[in-house]
Design a protein around this nucleic acid. Structure first.
Lengths: 223, 223
DNA sequence: TCTTGTCGAATTGTTCAACGATCCTTACGT
DNA sequence: ACGTAAGGATCGTTGAACAATTCGACAAGA
């Protein structure tokens, strides 16, 4: 009875002002309020949020290490604008993390998350809610990676997906990008459930190649 | 002619005071001058290094995100003391990253690094230089992971190994821990060179299981 | 017209002193 | 043994200040 309680320990750690500021900025960036490439002024933001410049700078450091901000000395912080090389690398990491995940026998709760993400995506698609499809898709892959049963890998994936969201913001047509993956996720789920891990791995590789090509193309139509 | 020059652009980025302070602290931690669990006082360190508390705190943030420091609100920063669960997770990550690496056909320069690391380890062992063996061993695994050809994975591995170094500091007998891996690395290299990737993967898994058990045992002899 | 030198405004980098908030220890009382 | 109160030490945050750096504008020269 007391054992369960220990799960709530993380919540106890109240957060510092800097962390709360970072939360606000992280949200604004991921929703696109601050756009990739945009410079974030220390003075105006510290004024708007009513925190000191020093505190704001601590928040900037936090987000910088999450890959969301780019800190250029004496020039300020900018919302990260991933390059085509960054996109390629992000997908290379996904191939490793998701590839390893798909070859493992999934734990039951993780599998449930995977199913739920597929359902959510299908329902959002039926509503023409492509933002919702994107969110569900992200949850799908987060759940997939959790098969590895490693908190550090889960955290790395969270950061990776946050960085990828920056990339999605440069896509002008979210539907064309997200729509094909609704069915793909359903198919991949089926292969995983039936234990055909090698086929699932092959399908996943094709899946990632396709997505990467689409994004790279958006960056540089000539490639 | 001017095009080549742009490659040197990264070098131009001078480092801020906070980054240089972080470099100093990182070195001290990895060499064991600051020991795991020890608290780092803002006042005494900022005084000794002649930087302001604010700047020092920025350096603390940097190292905190690298997993070397543990920041507890209103209590200060402590050199991270990984738990047994942390060790298990670190090895879980290694299984994924190194497992994926060993299944790939290595690029030539990366293979050369691998060979060199094996030679260095053998020479250091002949000199009874177990610290040197540990360093060479780390380079071996860093090179192995580079087969994945991903800068982000390389960086993640760097941080992981830095965290593992903290764990090594609690080992009282470095020879007993490092010695067996000299031959193991040689064997693994052979399997990789001859392209027997599945056998190499199996050997690596056993390799990692063994190392993990040894470390966990050092933490809690009852397990 | 193109390049180069120079100036000044704007912004960041860093420091400092101050005060409130929190934690830890010790002592005290029940 | 337990709860509580007081005190010192340390961290969290602020606001101001000054140095360093960047950037754009504009004038001088080829």
């Amino acid at each position: 009875m007391v054992a369960d309680l220990s799960q709530d320990r993380p919540r106890l750690g109240r957060s510092s002002t800097a962390e709360r500021v970072a939360d606000v900025l992280r949200g604004r960036i991921s929703e696109g309020y601050f756009q990739p490439g945009q410079r974030l002024s220390e003075e105006s933001i510290s004024e708007a949020l009513e925190v000191s410049r020093n505190t704001l700078r601590e928040a900037f450091r936090l987000l910088g290490h999450e890959g969301l901000l780019d800190h250029r000395l004496n020039r300020g912080v900018f919302v990260r604008l991933p390059s085509a090389e960054d996109v390629a690398d992000l997908y290379q990491v996904r191939r490793v993390l998701e590839g390893a995940a798909v070859r493992r026998a999934p734990a039951e709760p993780a599998l449930a998350l995977l199913k739920q993400a597929v359902l959510d995506a299908e329902q959002a698609a039926a509503r023409d809610d492509w933002q919702g499809v994107g969110t569900a898709n992200i949850r799908f892959h987060q759940a997939l990676v959790s098969f590895n049963q490693s908190p550090r890998i889960d955290e790395a994936m969270r950061q990776l997906l946050a960085e990828l969201r920056l990339v999605f913001h440069v896509m002008e047509n979210p539907r064309a990008f997200h729509e094909p993956f609704v069915d793909r996720n359903r198919t991949l789920l089926g292969l995983i459930e039936s234990g055909e891990s090698e086929q699932a791995a092959a399908y996943l590789d094709d899946y990632l190649d396709h997505a990467e090509r689409l994004l790279i193309h958006a960056y540089d139509p000539d490639r």
